[in-house]
Design a protein around this nucleic acid. Structure first.
Lengths: 134, 134
DNA sequence: CAGTATCCGGTGCGATACTG
DNA sequence: CAGTATCGCACCGGATACTG
């Protein structure tokens, strides 16, 4: 929650997932000031979910882009789940159709809960153990 | 993000998922004051992810418990995904082993990204369309 | 057990301005 | 394009006290 307990941070993460990589674009798309974007990007880098990758376009000066680390990629199911939930349970299609699809077959993707044995696990078959109900 | 952009709110949601239902227990387990718990529980009820259900134990006075609505249940994959991520990428096992398992087979559960055609979708096969990269 | 009321310090963030 | 610096207000949330 230290990482993801903040609105702006999650929104920034989402934009990187969408494909935005540059500071300016991220700040504008999330709708925060540069100061705020700078702060949370720094925090996300410190938390190890984003990293600044330098790159060079021919004839251009060196730039760097924000990219997901392994830990960041591992968070994407959560982002996708949130996306899905928003689409299903909040006001419909704020603007413009957004689609998340499988490149190879064109079908839309969704998150599912499955067990290690491969079963689809409906929520009422989930058991949580090891925590005291004080 | 209005619903889930807040640390305490997500933590409260998690505790309900874990099985806590009563005000007192929720506040204590999340580690916030009653005032804070009251505020976010109210917000979560207003957002339609929790509801207060009255119940009666024989010989006891009427009480009510907080329960997940359909929208709340739909958020659980996100909570589970967060749980999983925390277990995999942050400091290990803060205290006490917590396990999330499939009741029918005992295997641990995880969230997976799949497409409507049933394929497992690795992250690099995910395509996001319909959003301008300004 | 289930909250409500008040006080008050910390922080999130917008606005604005400036730097390489 | 990629930030940093400062100001000021709104809001988050702890401590404490009180109610049904």
């Amino acid at each position: 929650m230290q990482v993801v307990g903040n609105r702006s941070a999650v929104l920034l993460l989402r934009e990187v997932f969408y494909g935005a990589t540059r500071f300016d674009s991220l700040a504008r798309r999330v709708g925060v000031t540069e100061a705020v974007a700078a702060r949370w990007l720094k925090e996300l880098v410190a938390a190890g979910v984003l990293e600044k990758v330098p790159y060079q376009e021919p004839g251009q000066r060196t730039r760097h882009e924000y990219a997901l680390t392994d830990a960041g990629h591992a968070l994407m199911p959560v982002v996708i789940g949130l996306l899905e939930w928003g689409a299903a349970w909040t006001d419909p299609h704020p603007r413009g159709e957004l689609r998340v699809t499988h490149r190879d077959c064109g079908e839309s993707v969704a998150v599912e809960v499955r067990c290690a044995a491969g079963h689809d696990v409906p929520e009422d078959e989930i058991v949580v153990t090891g925590r005291v109900t004080r």
